[in-house]
Design a protein around this nucleic acid. Sequence first.
DNA 1: ATGAAAGCGCTAACAC
DNA 2: GTGTTAGCGCTTTCAT
Lengths: 336, 336
Amino acid sequence: MAIRLQDIADDLNLSKMTISKVLRGQTDVSAETKARVLKRMKELNYRPNISARGLRTGQTYSVGMVVPTLADPAIAQMVRGMNEVFRPASYSLVISSVDGDAELEEREAELHLSRQVDALIVCPRSDASDAPQVLKTTTVPVIYAGSTPPRFAGLSVGLREAEVGQLAAEHLLERRCKRIAYLRGPRTAVADKRFAGFLEALRNAGVTVRQEWIAETQSSEAEYRSGFAAMKRLQAGKMRPDGVVAYTDLLAAGARDAALSGRMEIPRTLQVIGCGNVIEVCETQVSLTSVDLAREELGRRVARMALKRIEEKGETSQRSATLSPRVVQRESTRAS
Amino acid sequence: MAIRLQDIADDLNLSKMTISKVLRGQTDVSAETKARVLKRMKELNYRPNISARGLRTGQTYSVGMVVPTLADPAIAQMVRGMNEVFRPASYSLVISSVDGDAELEEREAELHLSRQVDALIVCPRSDASDAPQVLKTTTVPVIYAGSTPPRFAGLSVGLREAEVGQLAAEHLLERRCKRIAYLRGPRTAVADKRFAGFLEALRNAGVTVRQEWIAETQSSEAEYRSGFAAMKRLQAGKMRPDGVVAYTDLLAAGARDAALSGRMEIPRTLQVIGCGNVIEVCETQVSLTSVDLAREELGRRVARMALKRIEEKGETSQRSATLSPRVVQRESTRAS
DNA sequence: ATGAAAGCGCTAACAC
DNA sequence: GTGTTAGCGCTTTCAT
């Protein structure tokens, strides 16, 4: 077995209490003793048993996180933001990925609670209509990251999704686009909100929305191809769009490449804007203007909220927060 | 506080031992009692405290994993493979991302040990020359995933990196390429091995390697642009390559797009092959042939190795394993 | 400044 | 089939 407090105590003819005090930086230990203890700890490669400590104190300094998938740059960004806050506070983030499986999400959330996390962060699956059951029966703080499922009355940090569509539309309108197409993406709550924002911006600008320019795209697989195909279809119509808003950067990239492979020039005859601001995708070819979804900031906010809720044990002085997206301009739209 | 075994025991006028037995599926409990207990557990939303159990049994059923970054599709694939093995065995994978920081890697590994993981999996940073110090002073099984750092004498599951370069070269040679360029990527051990394999394949085929076709590319940032620029340079030379092997898919994509934007046709006048088989990157434009790095299988193997090592407590009947890559053909190279 | 006792929630080993 | 005792490694509380 590994080295324990007791071993060090025996070794130094002290009680384990004294060792424990040194370990936790208590001040009522003589400097000399403290030095001896620390030295021996190093030598023996002592590592405190966090489970045991947690059992005693009721705090594990770990925060659970449930995400639909790890293969999503947005998640990686959020996690980076969270760690920025958690690490300095000595908390660890324990992530589990559930591959979009609702049942697994339930099980993993439960597992986290069993492991005594101090808080639980949930990134809802895109099609989630409800929070996992477990979360309703726990006193552990739960925070939603990205959006709150409709029937969950808890804390969350979200993004003004409607603004995403709105900003994208306004960006193109400011650049004199008159015929703006939209690549719709999946039929999820998030996608619907972005689309609604897009429509509203056009309406506010007095620009008509033509049904034929609202392009349905395939499911999340093969997004690029889906965007490519949709753009080809749009180009085949008699009225060609002079601007495209796409639900994701990959859709936008597909649309861009379809346009380039046709007769279009970007941004001269067609301007394109995506969502996500995923650099690996945006910084290609004629680079893509994109709506940044503030994932890192979102991660930071969620983490800070979690820490606060952990501290205040019970009374909840807190409110959910919502962030705004912003446009990052690149070559696929004009400068002014 | 949460519900404990004791609460259920009190509730049902049983000893907590009986409850514990039901919890763990022991058979020496009457069917009737068992049913009552299970029912009450459900009702009260009882969740066993895994820390406490771990403290007692010395097993936490969690496996730590340290990765250089989460924003890497290869990692996501490995994790999927691991979970495929771990979940059915009731183990959880606890991942921490260290953003390529050696010191952080050390700290996170230590943290995992403090949290009493049953095994530790490490994905070495690309520039790692040595394993974290902590790992030398622990009895917990440690397994390297992807490659073993030079000075670490432990278990690992790796990939025959030289074969990656070799397969790529052979793929192009079989397709009648005579003038094969190579986009080299960063100066890491892995990149060097792939390059060595590439050189060997050419030598075996009696094809000369021209220095001017070995293109240095920028650091990992902006890979696409780097590949694009490198290809432009190659095209500007008097002897133009008729085939390109790139260290990553993103480099390959950049090279492909540079070629397409010039006078080249792919695969007719230029054939391109990348490494990584990242679908989001490969399935674009003229889709990219790529060397698949068997990440999911690697994850599975690592996980199985971890479970075995956990079981056999001490004696180590095991040897490291090495997997082979394989080529996935797409449009950027010819059919035959 | 140091230490003894008790107990966090659970389970192994053994009675009954 | 059920219960008792002891203890995993640590910290809290209170003596000394």
